[in-house]
Design a protein around this nucleic acid. Structure first.
Lengths: 334, 334
DNA sequence: CTGAAAGCGCTAACAT
DNA sequence: ATGTTAGCGCTTTCAG
């Protein structure tokens, strides 16, 4: 069943059928009804390829994230997908891992699909802070289609960034920790991404502004796996710390497990603060105080901006920062 | 830059360029090299639409699951996506929720994309057990393209099912519970899907085979949210139980939280068993004994079968059950 | 308001 | 081994 068949049956030309399919105003209601009836009866579905060929667009948005299995990413992807569908867009999904080469490859592949826009979820796409060409591939992609970063930030033509104020969040919470009497705050992270760097900067700035030294050994990089983190911490018998600020809830839960193993009371002997307000934060014992970086909000703003842009609007903000909020639970005394 | 431009520049016909793109053996190495050089130089990318139009395939697989934000689904989708990419396939992703209407709609939409095959993740697509036409839409989809169910089972032409032996798993673990002295085993679930039904059946069969009564009040349906589950359990002061078998780790963690609130010792006063061996199972305290339904294995088998089928092979098994395995941790005494 | 016809870029059968 | 050409199904001027 193609457009010719329908045209023949309905006794009109293919142009008219096409107009009906696209709901053009230049067709009489009567004709529209007749054609629609035929399409209905014969279960006609326009061929998306042919359509794409003509329009050079398939109403699909590309989404790339390092790993959909990560709960934060998964939530974002789920949310994006749902909202995009409301607007009649499809999603094609790529996982790129964090490796530079794979990330470049993912973008190259996805661009071939003639997507209408590209969404990059996660600050891993905002470069690693070095001044090599680690983000060049994104800028090149932006020459072809608009690129939207979620929780990352990159300057460039046709690149739009929505990110959370991680610097401010860690600055504030580190300050609270210090003001409640903590002096040895362990910074626990698994990443050197844009957002991880901002978190670190906020942490360090807070230490400095309270006259505390920034000690290298109190920054620990580890894999994001509960038991792995616990064991790393247990093995570092030299390290003394009275609180932990983690860049992800998984890491923070590792710290909680460490505290159990060492029989340290929380929050008295060890304060722990997680990040992302994920399901994990409410599973451990005691439950985690965590920073909610409001992924949903970031996604919403991104989608809104994208739809405006694809709709032809021009005044889209190049970057919009969003405040985090602290979810107080039981691993801190504030 | 299209195939004509390249042909002109390389001084060959478009047919030759096309052959080079598709790596046909009927082109001399010399010509191939020359054409490739031109394609490289001008950054030529074949137009997927035009290609799709001719071949009526775009080398993409549709994936539908109720909710990618769910960690089990997310892991499956991540895994599928990665492996499909290895085979040069793209993924288009739809979340359908559990509502019948939305599920039907998702399939209808995704079929329009001319995907090469459809993967349905989650036993929600295996019907609700009633004998109405709740799975008819899937059978209709299978008339057009092969449909692969992951962790579900459906008879039908062109439908291939890979699922875990949930019945056996719950039968075994319930038996162990009974043999270790438990008599009041609470069955905790959030679903009436195919797999949830199988789990329930295994549980009931084990009770019966040990001469224990199947008590309706010991089956509780709830939302899959840690605190919600805890509160439900706390509110049912009438209910007495010495162990919990949950159909998902999230539910099981809820039960653990309940035990804390009631100051019940685990596993002595309350045994808890989760399902899916998710990250959550290792976050709570004590850590959950859980049934691993080996989602990765299910995905792998599915992909292997799919590639065989798309490659033209005919002898694909219509259904393959996979054994679960019990991950023993601290909420049980076996 | 409707129709005829020219592409869109590629594949594949047919010819050389 | 390479070229010619007829579609694939749709959108979109351009005419009427």
């Amino acid at each position: 069943m193609n457009i010719y068949d329908i045209a023949k049956i309905a006794g009109v030309s293919i142009a008219t059928v096409s107009r009906v399919v696209n709901d053009s105003p230049r067709v009489s209601e009567k004709t529209k009804r007749r054609v629609r009836a035929v399409m209905e009866e014969y279960q006609y579905t326009p061929n998306v390829f042919a359509r794409g060929l003509g329009l050079d667009s398939m109403k699909t948005i590309g989404i790339i994230c390092p790993d959909v299995a990560d709960s934060y990413m998964a939530a974002a992807v789920a949310f994006l997908e749902r909202r995009l569908r409301e607007y009649g867009y499809d999603c094609i999904l790529y996982s790129s891992s964090h490796q530079q080469e794979k990330k470049e490859q993912a973008i190259e592949l996805i661009l071939k699909k003639r997507i209408d826009a590209l969404v990059l979820v996660g600050s891993t796409y905002a470069g690693n802070g070095s001044d090599d060409d680690s983000t060049g591939y994104i800028k090149r992609a932006a020459e072809k289609i608009p690129v939207f970063l979620i929780n990352g930030h990159l300057e460039g033509k046709n690149i739009y960034s929505v990110y959370s104020r991680d610097y401010q969040a860690t600055f504030d919470v580190t300050s609270k920790l210090i003001e409640s009497g903590r002096k040895q705050i362990l910074f626990l992270t698994d990443s050197r991404s844009y957002s991880a760097r901002k978190k670190l900067e906020g942490y360090e700035a807070a230490l400095k502004s309270h006259g505390l030294p920034v000690r290298g050994e109190l920054k620990v990089y580890t894999k994001n796996q509960v038991h792995y983190v616990r064991d790393i911490l247990l093995s570092r018998r030299d390290l003394e710390f009275d609180s932990v600020l983690a860049t992800d809830d998984g890491l923070a839960v590792g710290a909680v497990k460490y505290a159990h193993a060492r029989r340290k009371k929380m929050p008295e002997e060890l304060s722990v603060i997680g990040y992302n307000n994920s399901e994990l934060s409410v599973c451990c014992e005691p439950e985690l105080t965590t920073i909610d970086n409001t992924g949903e909000k970031l996604c919403n703003i991104t989608i809104d901006n994208m739809m405006k842009l694809l709709g032809g609007q021009k005044d889209i903000p190049k970057e919009v920062p969003v405040d985090c909020c602290l979810v107080k639970r039981c691993t801190t005394d504030f």
